[in-house]
């Protein structure tokens, strides 16, 4: 089993490396060998050789820097997603797959154009919130935190519905993007640690797409308790 953590040292603002650690543990606890490649700017990888790809969030400047480098994967990431292989891009990393990103000075950057959405950044205020989202493929909500300065418009297949917190843009009730087994969300930090059911879902996708192993969940007791406490606290807070 091969996992790829792209731009691990520059797109890692909120402890996102832990998403990869969580997958590494659940897959190896399920009796499979896991190999993780962590590569960054200037490196090259054959994406099709991997069973999962992850990118986390970075500063606005670093995202632009990474975008320039990431452009070389334009065709291969499209092929990867079209062949229904799983990938997760969190924070502002998934913005790179859209049509354009306009920065706070009005400068336009061309995205990889895999999807049709457009991104507009501002530098006046951080847009942040604790979030509770629901998804049609999960039987429990997702909890987490969003920390961004951009709005996204033009996503037609959303990943999440906003129960509490903020969505793609002001007043949007949806968040993120799903296409085949590609997941893009602005939720920052270790979303797979905070949401063991989402971890399980993605681990299952990896297993179905590859060697059909049975995912082990025994080690997730603390994670499950932590999730329940956070969901309780957020429900309590937002009910006020």
């Amino acid at each position: 089993m091969k996992l790829l953590h792209l731009y691990h040292d520059i797109m890692n603002l909120y402890g996102e490396y832990a998403n990869v650690s969580a997958l590494e543990r659940i897959i190896s606890n399920s009796g499979e060998n896991v190999e993780i490649d962590r590569i960054s700017l200037g490196d090259t990888a054959d994406l099709q050789a991997y069973d999962f790809i992850y990118i986390g969030s970075g500063t606005e400047d670093n995202q632009k820097l990474v975008l320039e480098d990431f452009a070389k994967y334009k065709d291969s990431i499209a092929e990867y997603i079209n062949s229904n292989k799983p990938a997760l891009f969190t924070g502002n990393s998934f913005e790179m797959l859209g049509k354009t990103i306009i920065d706070c000075n009005g400068k336009e950057y061309e995205g990889l154009g895999i999807f049709d959405f457009k991104v507009v950044e501002q530098n006046k205020r951080r847009v942040t919130a604790d979030i509770v989202y629901t998804a049609d493929f999960l039987n429990k909500p997702v909890v987490g935190f969003v920390n961004k300065c951009s709005e996204i418009n033009g996503i037609d297949s959303h990943l999440f519905q906003v129960k509490y917190g903020i969505g793609d843009s002001k007043d949007s009730t949806n968040e993120g993007i799903r296409s085949n087994s590609f997941f893009g969300t602005h939720v920052t930090g270790p979303i797979l640690i905070k949401n063991p059911h989402l971890l399980l879902y993605i681990a299952q996708l990896i297993s179905n797409n590859t060697r059909d192993f049975a995912v082990s969940t025994e080690h997730l007791q603390r994670e499950n308790s932590a999730y329940e406490v956070t969901l309780r606290e957020l429900n309590k807070r937002y009910a006020q």
């Binding site: 909120y14 402890g15 604790d130 935190f145």
Partner: peptide, 11 residues
């Protein structure tokens, strides 16, 4: 202020 975010623990 209120937040339940603990991603900083991972840093």
């Amino acid at each position: 202020y209120f937040t339940s975010d603990v991603s900083w623990l991972w840093d």
